[in-house]
Computed example of a mutant assay.
Amino acid sequence: MPGGAQLSVTDLRRAARHPVNYRVIGEHRLHGDVMLHVVNISANGFMINGELALSRGERVTIRLPEVGRIEAFVIWNNGDRAGFQFERILRLEDFMRTIDALQPNPKLRASR
């Protein structure tokens, strides 16, 4: 059985993204702690801004409000931005509470 991440990018990019400005420490098994600046998030994953020395398929563990620890896999990395897919889709209730915690300004939240 082949190892590595089984990434399922079957058109999840159409998921609604919510703009955030969230800095979090990701845990990587080889690089240790990596600083991530999350700029948008959906129930399926998130995008960061800034350089990241990780390649497609590598994973990090982050801690989100309401969700707690969750693993995410690098889907793409173009040098100054990177997209991640969560190991599982976030439950709607948890995701909405996470958005409220990450983006407290209701004017910046996407309409629900």
Rank of each mutant, 00 (worst) to 15 (best):
D33Q: 14
E58K: 05
G3P: 12
V24S: 03
G26Y: 01
R112K: 11
V60C: 02
P2T: 08
D80R: 13
A110I: 02
R81D: 13
N105E: 14
V38F: 06
R109L: 04
L92E: 13
A101N: 06
P65T: 12
V9G: 02
V60L: 15
A110K: 09
E27V: 10
R17P: 01
M1E: 11
V39H: 09
H37L: 14
F46M: 14
H37N: 15
E58I: 04
V67W: 06
P104K: 03
A5Q: 09
G32R: 07
S8L: 11
V74A: 07
E66T: 06
L102Q: 10
W76R: 15
L54I: 15
G26P: 12
K107S: 08
G50I: 11
N105F: 01
I62M: 06
T10W: 04
A15Y: 00
R112G: 04
V34C: 08
F84T: 05
M1S: 14
G57L: 04
L7T: 02
P104A: 04
R23I: 10
S111W: 06
V9D: 08
N105V: 02
L36M: 11
A16H: 01
G68K: 13
L36D: 11
H28C: 06
E58G: 10
M96Q: 10
G3R: 02
E87S: 08
G68M: 07
P106E: 05
I70W: 09
P2I: 07
N21F: 06
F84A: 02
W76C: 00
S42P: 03
R13D: 11
F46N: 00
L102D: 12
N77V: 15
S42M: 03
G57Q: 04
V60N: 01
I89L: 02
G68Q: 03
L102H: 09
L90I: 14
D33E: 14
R91T: 10
F73H: 14
R14H: 14
T61H: 09
M96F: 01
E66F: 07
I70M: 12
R97M: 04
D80E: 07
A72S: 09
L108Y: 02
V34H: 15
Q85S: 12
R88E: 12
A110C: 13
I41P: 01
A5D: 02
G68H: 07
E27H: 15
S8N: 12
I75G: 04
L64T: 05
Q85L: 05
A82N: 09
F46I: 02
T61A: 11
E87I: 04
V39Y: 11
V60K: 02
E27N: 13
